[in-house]
Simulated scan of single mutants.
Amino acid sequence: MPAVTRLPSRASLLTEPPRAGLDLAALATTWPLLATARRGDGHPVLVLPGLLTGDPATLVLRTALRALGHDVSGWSLGLNRGPTGHVVHTLRDRLERLHRTSGRRVSLVGWSLGGLYARELARAAPGSVRGLVTLGTPVVRWAPWVRTASGIVDGGTGLLRQAAALPRPWAERGSLRVPATSVYTRADGIVHWSSCRYEVGPRRENVEVRGSHLGLAVNPAVLWVLADRLGIAEGAWKPFRPPLGLSTLFPRSR
């Protein structure tokens, strides 16, 4: 896969908050359709939030998944300030505990930085993970986006005070050996969309939606993808295909 060197435009970054509001408004109008989405089988799902957010930011997403029959857990670690040693060890322990107590593999859902956590958990313990869905996450391992973001942090920024103290994403050895879906939007003002696409292969796919980065956790198309991917029976993975009635929400799925 070619190197990813671009960053989102300034305009897309500045318009993220109002566009996230539009994503939420779209959810309000399409909420009844989610009742017709694929149902879950009760297996555990662990949802990991983005940078400088926490469980409140994924409340709508987790509520929708619970209504569809999933056993959903938040990360319960407060504000996501980066993968500190405490965060890394706690997430590893939580994954193993969910797997052990349920007797079933765990699905991982990660938004932005949370998706990087989810990928590394899946690398570390593939036997405990059923599948992985990332939302607006750079899935090109050690992509230039990560290095560029680290440079911005090291140089200081008006957006984040004391940002230089934020830890870097951690890296586990080994390949990603579980089914993985990357959901992205070309209008992302935080992470450039081109870094959010896998090289398509067996049990790897990219699903494009319309919307903002900050609105991914309330985007109706994202919630439909999650319901569909998490509702697939274990061992029966197939590529995502948008329903005809919602095809306009999915510009590209490949």
Rank of each mutant, 00 (worst) to 15 (best):
M1W: 06
M1N: 11
M1R: 09
V4G: 08
P8M: 13
S9A: 15
R10D: 14
S12Y: 06
P17M: 14
P18E: 10
R19T: 12
A20H: 08
L22R: 15
L22T: 08
A28P: 00
A28S: 07
P32G: 09
L33M: 08
A35I: 00
A37N: 04
G40L: 07
H43D: 13
P44N: 10
V45G: 10
P49R: 04
L52W: 09
D55W: 08
P56V: 08
T58H: 07
V60Q: 05
L61R: 05
R62P: 01
T63F: 03
L65D: 02
R66V: 14
L68S: 07
H70A: 06
D71A: 15
D71E: 12
D71V: 04
V72M: 02
V72W: 02
G74N: 10
S76D: 12
S76P: 01
G78Q: 11
G78F: 08
L79G: 00
N80K: 01
T84P: 04
T84E: 13
G85W: 03
H86A: 12
V88L: 11
T90M: 01
D93L: 07
L95Y: 15
L95D: 12
R97M: 07
H99A: 14
R100K: 14
G103F: 10
V106W: 02
L108S: 04
S112V: 08
L113T: 08
L113M: 10
G114C: 02
G114E: 05
A118H: 03
A122R: 01
A124L: 06
P126M: 06
G127K: 09
V129I: 03
L132K: 01
V133W: 00
V139L: 03
V140F: 08
A143S: 15
P144H: 09
V146A: 11
V153H: 01
D154V: 04
G155P: 00
G156L: 04
L159M: 12
R161K: 09
A164G: 03
A164S: 11
A165G: 00
A165S: 10
P167A: 13
P167W: 09
R168G: 03
P169N: 14
P169A: 10
P169Q: 13
W170G: 05
E172P: 04
G174S: 06
S175M: 06
L176S: 06
V178P: 01
V178C: 06
P179G: 05
P179S: 05
A180V: 10
Y184T: 05
R186H: 06
H192C: 11
Y198H: 13
E199Y: 00
V200L: 03
P202D: 15
P202K: 12
R203G: 04
E205K: 02
G211K: 05
H213R: 00
L216A: 06
A217E: 04
A217Y: 02
V218E: 00
V218Q: 02
V218I: 03
N219Y: 03
A221E: 11
W224M: 00
L226K: 10
L226D: 08
A227I: 08
L230T: 07
A233R: 15
G235P: 07
A236V: 09
A236C: 13
K238A: 14
P242T: 13
P242M: 12
P243S: 13
L244K: 09
S247A: 15
P251T: 12
R252D: 15
S253N: 12
